[in-house]
Design a protein around this nucleic acid. Structure first.
Length: 587
RNA sequence: GGGGUCGUAGCUCAGUUUGGUUAGAGCGCUUGCCUGUCACGCAAGAAGUCGAGGGUUCGAGUCCCUUCGGCCCCGCCA
């Protein structure tokens, strides 16, 4: 079809264009047919411009404009005019002018859309996902994708300036036993063998260090076959970084520089470096999370020592077993009704702990069901330690160290939400450091790497690997923004003997290590430099910068919580012929 | 694997508690009128597998069972 190409975008025209003959292309956003004159807002990703069809100006074009409906694709030509006094639209950047049409081509018609293309859309997410191309026409979604684009550009510019080189690593890689469940890809040429999609390019980037590429970065898709969440997709994007001849501070400094750049260029905010550091222990014992949200306080207190020899068996026995009794103060919480407290207790129990104890500090003094076990004085002391004032409420949990604190951590977040303590305009960035090397997996009955199996222990803790490995701390660090883990990394092991030892502690014997990671151990025998790195969750960062609740809103084509792409109905069944070629038989 | 919640017109929702007339509203859509609107206005109209299947009942949107799907959370996510 012949049509006039645009001379300007729909967000471009201003008073200075008045009198010019121009052409716009785009979608019909709204039409207002007043019988005589017809107004059309034509929209593209740059903005909206009002076009006027006046029968006195051009009768045939006006007649054609009668046919226009929402989301028709048009090319429209005309003269830029100053709007009559009093009819300017301050809501549009182009609102000072409109275009008096003298030419119109309908490039394509559109059926009525399943939902309106508007900024403040109120509809179910499954519809938005099914008709993603319509959802992506909306300005907020276009801004989100533009934000991502900006992040890619900032990242590439920043690392290039700092002498990093971008290297692509394979998408078809070797399956590794550790970590998340792999996505497997059957090999047609090698019957019975499988590639895996990378959970991260970890091994490749370390081998690039051995190869002498001392500063590497990549914006890279990663894949993990685990259950999805608001902030987790099966495939997601990392900014992957690795450096040689560095320690923690070197990596963190580079990261802080990039974060400064992001904050400045995206949010217009100057952030101060270096960011505060919290040890893992401080984070858990203070806030119940390895990614604490420090935009608000609600810090925990430990009551274990006080209640250890009290008459309250539940508390005392737990502490004697090595558990903790801890809690925090809810400002103004003493006014909670019985119903509200029951609700809170139920919420806590749903998190998998036995219960929630609490003390209200009212005008009349302490009010609590545990007074009869602990005595008034001890209850008062607990309130003092927790910093509770009259009118406050102290929540207390007694359980094993990890369980008690992580449950308090969830409660802390819940209370912050209920009390509206989270300031959305606040940006909090901090490091969590000194993670343990290992975590014990009840399910697998063995130690698993807290970060990953290539993470180096802290030199002063290296001896613990031979005696009490669970106490050994790793040279690992996470970057936390507003209670979200947005980056995590470590200084790696570069000594093959130490690497073998760590594999051993993870229950990976010499044979298995050779089979699964032999190539890495080999590489380390030929001159591996000290190295370390980090990886950012780009989607999560984009979500926070965009101020949205789910990473689905910053991903062009995301999947649902059950891993389905509603638009193209993926995953789907395949022909038997395809399976045969891949030597696969369905159960 | 488990828990919670939602599913009624194209969209957002009411109706479900206590089964009973022809399942309603707003927006959108269609048609007509309307020459400065911008959430245009006015008038009329069309539009329903009450997510699906089964059951109880004289009768089911409503009660029971099964199932599918969306969202949130726990587990899981080196």
């Amino acid at each position: 079809m012949l049509y006039k190409k645009r001379t300007h975008t729909c967000g471009e025209l201003r008073a200075l264009h008045i009198g010019q003959s121009i052409t716009l292309t785009g979608w019909v956003d709204t039409r207002r047919d007043l019988g005589g004159v017809i107004f059309i807002d034509v929209r593209d990703r740059y903005g909206k411009t009002q076009v006027v069809f006046n029968p006195q100006n051009h009768e045939a074009i006006h007649a054609l404009a009668k046919e226009l409906r929402t989301e028709f694709v048009i090319s429209v030509s005309g003269t830029v005019e100053k709007r009559p006094a009093g009819t300017e639209n301050a809501k549009l950047l182009t609102g000072e002018i409109d275009v008096l049409a003298d030419g119109l081509t309908i490039l394509n018609k559109a059926e009525t859309t399943p939902f309106p293309i508007e900024d403040k859309l109120d509809t179910n997410e499954d519809l938005r996902l099914k008709y993603r191309y319509l959802d992506l026409r909306r300005a907020p979604m276009q801004q989100n994708l533009l934000l991502r684009h900006k992040m890619y550009q900032i990242t590439r510019r920043y690392f290039d300036e700092h002498n990093f080189i971008e290297v692509e690593t394979p998408i078809l890689m070797k399956s590794t036993p550790e970590g998340a469940r792999d996505f497997l890809v059957p090999s047609r040429i090698n019957p019975g063998k499988f590639y895996a999609l990378p959970q991260s390019p970890q091994t490749y980037k370390q081998i690039l260090m051995v190869a002498g590429y001392d500063r590497y970065f990549q914006i890279v898709k990663c894949f993990r076959d685990e259950d999805l969440r608001a902030d987790r997709q099966l495939e997601f994007t990392q900014i992957d970084v690795e450096m040689s001849f560095v320690d923690e501070i070197d990596i963190q400094t580079i990261v802080e520089g990039l974060m400064q750049r992001f904050m400045k260029e995206i949010k217009g905010i100057d952030v101060i470096t270096p960011f505060p550091r919290l040890t893992y222990k401080e984070a858990i014992e203070g806030y119940g999370s390895d990614k604490p949200d420090l935009r608000f306080d609600l810090k925990f207190s430990d009551f274990s020592a006080m209640v250890k020899d009290s008459g309250f068996k539940v508390f005392a026995d737990n502490v004697k077993k090595g558990g903790v009794v801890a809690g925090f103060t809810v400002p103004g919480g003493a006014s909670y009704t019985r119903n509200q407290m029951d609700n809170l207790v139920e919420f806590t129990k749903s998190l998998g702990v036995g219960g929630l104890a609490y003390i209200k500090l009212t005008e009349k003094g302490i009010e609590t069901a545990i007074e009869k076990f602990l005595g008034a004085e001890l209850c008062k002391n607990i309130c003092d330690i927790a910093g509770a004032k009259t009118g406050d409420l102290v929540l207390i949990i007694s359980d094993a160290w990890q369980k008690a604190y992580t449950t308090l951590g969830v409660l802390r977040l819940e209370m912050a939400k209920r009390l509206n303590l989270i300031d959305d305009n606040k940006w909090n960035l901090h490091w969590v450091v000194d993670f343990p090397m290992f975590d014990y997996s009840e399910e697998e009955k063995r130690h698993v790497a807290m970060h990953h199996p290539f993470t180096s222990p802290k030199p002063e803790d290296a001896h613990l690997l031979d005696t009490d490995a669970t106490k050994a701390r790793a040279r690992a660090y996470d970057l936390v923004m507003n209670g979200n883990e947005i980056a995590g990394g470590s200084i790696r092991i570069y000594d093959s003997a130490l690497q073998s030892k760590v594999f051993g502690l993870l229950g990976i014997g010499p044979e298995e290590a050779k089979m699964k990671f032999g190539f890495m151990l080999d590489a380390f025998r030929f001159g591996a430099p000290p190295h370390g790195g980090i990886a950012f969750g780009l989607d999560r960062m984009a979500m926070l910068f965009a101020g949205v609740k789910s990473i689905r809103d910053v991903i062009a084509f995301p999947k649902t919580a059950s891993g389905i792409s509603l638009m193209d109905e993926n995953p789907s069944e395949v022909d038997k012929k395809q399976l045969d070629e891949l030597h696969i038989k369905l159960k």
